[in-house]
């Protein structure tokens, strides 16, 4: 038990939580924006995977991790636009479009890696960049807290900053209001002159931008290479997180923290000798339990009102 306490009080454990959180939080915020606009982004997994590959390739070609990030973000945004085109112009089913996008990204990134490096599995041969970590000069020197708050990846700070930004955008800007209006009732939104298709296009592009960023963090922060299907279901966990967060940015942050702690626990408990496969289940079981409890409570409340 003291072993566990030591782990909890260790800044390294805190850093692991943040590392695990970063891609999930960015992706979940992306799903949130799409969800509120009524175009649930099931293709997040594929957008992350694409961002991860494009980031590695472009940073290797240009020698700049920042250009890699930019390219990853653009690629994600393009996939968001493609999704909007498929749904709103071609009239394809939203969920099926998401599944198709994931399939295309899984195959497409393998092909892309093969044509760029001759290898189908990993980008190890490429010298790709890594997003820098930031030392917060003043905060970092505070005795106890310092090691906890300073020295994390720039995208980790970006993800945390994105929570209030997304929250403000949804609640306080005209664009956020239009997104919510379109999500609640597209016909009513259209009658007051809002272009539903345009808002959904913008929301999906923004969602893809965040997806590309989440993917870039995976291959240029979490690790420093691209591997086939490296997202390993994180886009799906992000979906569960967004649903657990009940469509708000702060709720999404809270849900991300819960899942990230569960996953960090899983990682550290493996070092204590517990079977790692069972520990790996935790982050996938927790959302099922929480979602079920919440929907059950919601139903009980509605029943009480009747």
């Amino acid at each position: 038990m003291t072993g566990l306490l030591n782990i909890v009080a260790d800044p390294a454990t805190f850093a692991t939580v943040l590392r695990v959180m970063t891609p999930l939080l960015i992706a979940a915020l992306g799903i949130l924006i799409s969800d509120r606009a009524g175009v649930f982004n099931l293709g997040m997994e594929g957008m992350m995977l694409t961002g991860a590959l494009v980031g590695v390739l472009v940073s290797a070609w240009t020698g700049s991790a920042w250009l890699g990030l930019l390219a990853a973000v653009v690629a994600g945004g393009l996939m968001g636009a493609l999704m909007a085109f498929a749904v709103n112009t071609l009239g394809a089913n939203l969920i099926i479009t998401g599944i198709a996008l994931n399939l295309a990204a899984s195959s497409g990134t393998t092909l892309g890696l093969f044509f760029a490096t001759g290898d189908k599995g990993m980008s190890g041969a490429l010298k790709s960049g890594v997003m820098p970590s930031i030392d917060l000069a003043v905060l970092g020197s505070i005795p106890v807290i310092g090691p906890f708050v300073s020295g994390h990846n720039v995208l980790t700070y970006g993800a945390l900053l994105a929570v209030p930004l997304v929250s403000l955008m949804m609640a306080r800007t005209a664009f956020g209001l239009r997104i919510r209006a379109v999500g609640v009732d597209p016909k009513a939104a259209a009658t007051v002159g809002i272009s539903v298709k345009l808002i959904q296009l913008k929301a999906l592009i923004l969602s893809g931008v965040l997806g590309g960023m989440a993917g870039a963090y995976l291959s240029m922060g979490y690790v420093s290479w691209f591997a086939q299907d490296m997202t390993a279901g994180r886009g799906f966990i992000a979906i569960a997180i967004e649903v657990m967060g009940m469509g708000t940015a702060w709720g999404t942050l809270a849900a991300t923290v819960v899942i990230a702690i569960a996953e960090t626990l899983a990682i550290t408990m493996q070092t204590l000798g517990l079977p790692n496969e069972l520990m790996q289940m935790i982050p996938y079981v927790v959302p099922i339990v929480i979602l079920t409890i919440w929907t059950a409570r919601g139903r009980a409340k509605r029943a009480a009102l009747k």
Binding site: I95, G233, F236, I237, I239, A240, V243, E277, L278, Q280, M281, Y284, V285, P287, I288, L291, T292, T295, A296, G298, R299
Partner: peptide, 19 residues
């Protein structure tokens, strides 16, 4: 309990995999 089946089945897939 009205838990959204698309989301729960999506993550349950991975839970079952690791089990």
């Amino acid at each position: 309990w009205e838990a959204p089946e698309m989301v729960t089945s999506l993550v349950l897939n991975f839970a079952i995999l690791y089990a």
